[in-house]
Design a protein around this nucleic acid. Structure first.
Lengths: 348, 348
DNA sequence: GTGAAAGCGCTAACAG
DNA sequence: CTGTTAGCGCTTTCAC
């Protein structure tokens, strides 16, 4: 059941069989065919462990995610996977399992076992100990999404994305705009929420508009969180009625637009607006960040990024290093405004 | 950098070091401590390839998905992952990449390399060749979601889930109910859509209600598809107005309820209803299948299943086999009605 | 409780 | 173009 068997059957040596199986040059066409045929007949299944031991290369790269069930991670994972598959590498998934899943054990038990040739970290910040341990493996590493001290990273400019959103809104004439962002409890890079928020605040200031604190909301980067934030903004449920909106008092204190740090939250805000009997964008404009498919189908204006492309780029980068190339610099991932139906001039 | 180094440093033999590192019995406490200490100092990183070669066990299981970016797969993957992590196994992800990503190469290049000790197939049907090739590896295998000829499987009773939905609706007095299901282009188990549809049709027939063909729609198991189906059902966009609904003619031909084969489609149908100016559930009831988080936050009634639990159960099953146990029978995964706000008595 | 030796299945020089 | 010879780093009898 090994390479040896097929060597004896064909009367060749192990080395030749090995070379033939890998289709290397300097092997007769006929030999190759013969070997392949016999291998098939015998039901030969190669052992990556043996190959890995001999070469020191596992032909696999690890992807570390804080949690899996989030749009960005799933998309980025898909991108990494696509590129790895093209290169014939396997992908081993290390899921930290959120705040509850003890990272420590995950770290030591698995990632540090030379099972992979490189690591792609999704939107992760490591503490000093973790970084030190990973360094031990001497593997190429890169992080996607969010800056990571001491590591190469690829991702959008998180301050710029909210600025783009603000600029779009201000260009339409808005001056009273709220922001829904906030920490992601599930282990996302802590820097991202801050940067996006800062980008928003700075851009508003630059445009000469004040932003009261009560318009800086926490949407926990989730749909439900966005809905809650929207309710806070629009005065909660307004019943089933589709009337012309809340009272005059509420109206005065209502922003004419809201920028959300993710499309999922924007979707929640949209729902809150609908429940409050508000028309979008007539009464209020809403803009998100990401380029989520759901956003596209409901016509959400957004600042789109391409996590899949980021995943592909990250995979290519580490693969290049693994195959001997030097670490190359990586350009910031692009993000661009996609104007759809949820933004328009302010009312009045 | 190997076990040898730490052997020479401690003055022990490789065997003892190996035993100590794995905390086996018949090793002096003091020796264990000493070895661990030196290992740490030296920054020792074990090689899973070497261990795998020696033992024949990789301590890893493969998970094969048709595509990743779908609610069910992500959740199930999370469940499998959680259980594997608990057991100290790694998870290698094999993404077939939908209809476009050539399965063949994926199959031969990776899955067949003894890199894993078992395989969990997510909602997949294999053709005869694929099954034969996988058999070669003699690995325990199980499929989640949808029946798979010749393989053990775990999942809900796909005919039952739609029946439960129909029973709920009929219990409320509905007789005119439509169905949104359809093929999933992205490589899902082909049996699932058929079974759910059959379950719907049969249940309706059993309740004594006819279902015209035009009320059996294709929503491609996606949000966008559900929206399109909903538009077809409710007469397309009714403009921005929030009026009392479409004309009398349309009204007569409108179902009073619609069951959707997935929550994502149900969400689309809900949006279509809103756009058509219909109130839910006053004008039309909507029920989905799955238990998607978004559904929960918009108050969608659904027949919930727990893909994460299914993933955990599947992982436990293959792990048990890997560790020597016999293949145990697996009970059908539970699905239960969750009544929320989108279903009610029919109008009139 | 510890050591010596054999090997897991493959690849990689080095010869021919 | 093919064969020979050593390992890769660990586990595992079998002795002691």
């Amino acid at each position: 059941m090994g390479i040896q068997e097929i060597a004896t059957v064909t009367g060749l040596s192990k080395s030749t069989v090995s070379r033939a199986l890998r289709g290397m040059e300097n092997v007769a066409e006929t030999t190759i065919d013969e070997v392949r045929r016999v291998a098939d007949e015998l039901g030969y299944v190669p052992s990556s462990a043996a190959a890995g031991l001999a070469t020191g290369r596992q032909r696999a790269v690890g992807v570390v995610v804080p949690v899996i069930d989030r749009w960005f991670y799933v998309k980025a994972l898909g991108g990494v996977d696509a590129e790895l598959r093209r290169a014939g590498y396997d992908l081993v998934l290390y899921n930290l399992g959120g705040p509850g899943g003890d990272r420590d054990r995950a770290f030591r038990r698995s990632m540090l076992r030379h099972r992979v040739d490189a690591l792609v970290l999704l939107s992760l910040v490591l503490d000093a100990t973790e970084r030190a341990e990973l360094e031990l493996t001497r593997h190429p590493m890169i992080v996607i999404g969010g800056p990571a001290p001491g590591l190469r990273n690829i991702g959008v400019d998180d301050r710029a994305v909210t600025r783009i959103a603000v600029d779009h809104l201000c260009g339409l004439g808005h001056r009273r705009v709220a922001y829904v962002g906030g920490q992601d409890e599930a282990g996302m890079n802590v820097a991202v929420p801050h940067l996006r928020r800062d980008g928003f605040v700075d851009a508003m200031r630059a445009a000469g508009h004040a932003v009261p604190d009560r318009w800086l909301l926490d949407g926990r980067f989730s749909f439900a969180g966005g809905l809650a934030a929207g309710n806070a903004l629009f005065g909660g449920h307004a019943g089933a009625g589709a009337g012309a909106g809340a009272g005059a008092g509420a109206r005065l204190d209502r922003p004419t637009a809201v920028v959300c740090a993710s499309d999922e939250m924007a979707l929640g805000v949209l729902l809150a607006a609908a429940q409050a009997g508000l028309s979008v964008p007539a009464d209020v404009s809403v803009i998100g960040i990401d380029g989520h498919e759901y956003g596209a189908t409901v016509g959400l204006t957004t600042v789109a990024q391409d996590p899949e492309a980021q995943g592909r780029a990250a995979a290519r980068a580490v693969l290049a290093e693994v195959e001997g190339g030097a670490a190359v610099a990586i350009a910031a991932a692009p993000a661009h405004l996609v104007v759809r139906g949820t933004t328009g001039p302010p009312p009045g």
